[in-house]
């Protein structure tokens, strides 16, 4: 009989001035080493870097994750690196679901690295976020395509569903794509696509305006923000990039601005590569991160147009 339990099941709880993992269950292919308290502000925020021993999503995978953030807890959850989604044999579909629950006064930044759809990949992915009205959620979802042979071979299918709830039964948003390719013409010229969803107990409109002002500063990106349906406490950021880097930079920027809006301080360096990290970008951009660079350019553009 198939085991329907999630392979990764984490519960974050507040203990005094720290967030701890109250439940820490994982099994193959997920690997969880130590957690990190990287931030001075807020000191309670716990950073978790998820890894999989397979390093990729395979045709027969059925991966299930559950994250629960209790009141007062704060977490940043990311993955170690971009995940290739490998070919699935005909009739087979790789499945991945992430169920997230955030209680009042809980805070979660869920920023996994992008999915890379290889030729013949077939992925059915669901991200379901139930965030109480007093909780904060940021969830990112990015994919790109890649043919190692450079022959332009396509993935087989991508079905990706994001469901957002703000407590209650009726979803605030059900955002679904179900595609067999990237279409044609101008759309097919873009290499990466993504969305960021933000639910905030307060300050969503000001944060959205800040993100919108900075998007034009990212080279190679076409993006926009918009209020989600409902009570005005959430917004989405839609992103299309001529390369993956531009979309990752936009996600990092949204994440950074969200942290600043919530806690008055940008995230510290993660130690991961390129757009996510402030460290390696200094070499590439001559002193500032891709995010800082975009912030500077976007700010200048915003000032010029005002």
């Amino acid at each position: 009989m198939e085991d329907a339990r999630p392979q990764l099941d984490l519960v974050f709880a507040r203990r005094l001035d720290r967030t701890i993992l109250e439940r820490r269950i994982f099994r193959w292919p997920f690997v969880l080493t130590r957690t990190f308290a990287l931030e001075r502000t807020p000191p309670c925020l716990l950073s978790v870097f998820l890894q999989t021993s397979s390093g990729a999503v395979h045709g027969e995978d059925d991966l299930r994750q559950r994250l629960h953030i209790r009141g007062g807890a704060a977490a940043y959850v990311t993955t170690q690196g971009a995940s290739p989604v490998h070919r699935a044999t005909p009739g087979q579909t790789s499945k991945e679901s992430v169920g997230i629950r955030i209680e009042d006064d809980g805070h979660l930044e869920y920023v996994p690295e992008p999915r890379i759809l290889f030729p013949g990949a077939a992925l059915d992915q669901t991200i379901e976020v139930d965030c109480a009205p007093g909780g904060f959620a940021l969830a990112a979802d990015v994919f790109t395509i890649h043919d190692p042979a450079g022959e332009g071979r396509r993935f087989r299918s991508l079905r990706a569903t994001t469901i957002l709830r703000r407590g209650g039964d009726a979803p605030l948003l059900v955002d679904r794509v179900d595609i067999r390719g990237l279409g044609r013409g101008r759309t097919a010229a873009f290499a990466a696509f993504g969305s960021v969803y933000v639910l905030a107990p307060d300050g969503a409109a000001a944060l959205m305006a800040d993100v919108a002002a900075m998007l034009p500063g990212i080279p190679g990106l076409y993006g926009a923000t918009s209020e989600l349906p409902g009570d005005g406490t959430g917004f989405s950021v839609r992103l299309a990039g001529y390369d993956l880097r531009s979309v990752r930079t936009a996600v990092a920027l949204t994440w950074s601005l969200s942290r600043q809006s919530r806690f008055g301080c940008k995230p510290s360096a993660r130690g991961k590569d390129d757009a996510w990290s402030t460290k390696s970008d200094e070499d590439q951009l001559g002193g500032g991160s891709a995010v800082d660079d975009a912030l500077a350019r976007g700010g200048a553009d915003a000032r010029a147009s005002s």
């Binding site: 079905r159 679904r176 794509v177 179900d178 595609i179 279409g183 101008r186 759309t187 873009f190 696509f193 919108a212 076409y222 993006g223 926009a224 923000t225 918009s226 839609r238 299309a240």
Partner: peptide
């Protein structure tokens, strides 16, 4: 049938209307 859409550039163009 479960409704879905994938018109990213159109969605962005419409959302940028206030710019």
């Amino acid at each position: 049938a479960e409704p879905w859409s994938f018109t990213p550039l159109i969605d962005i163009a419409v959302s940028r209307v206030r710019c």
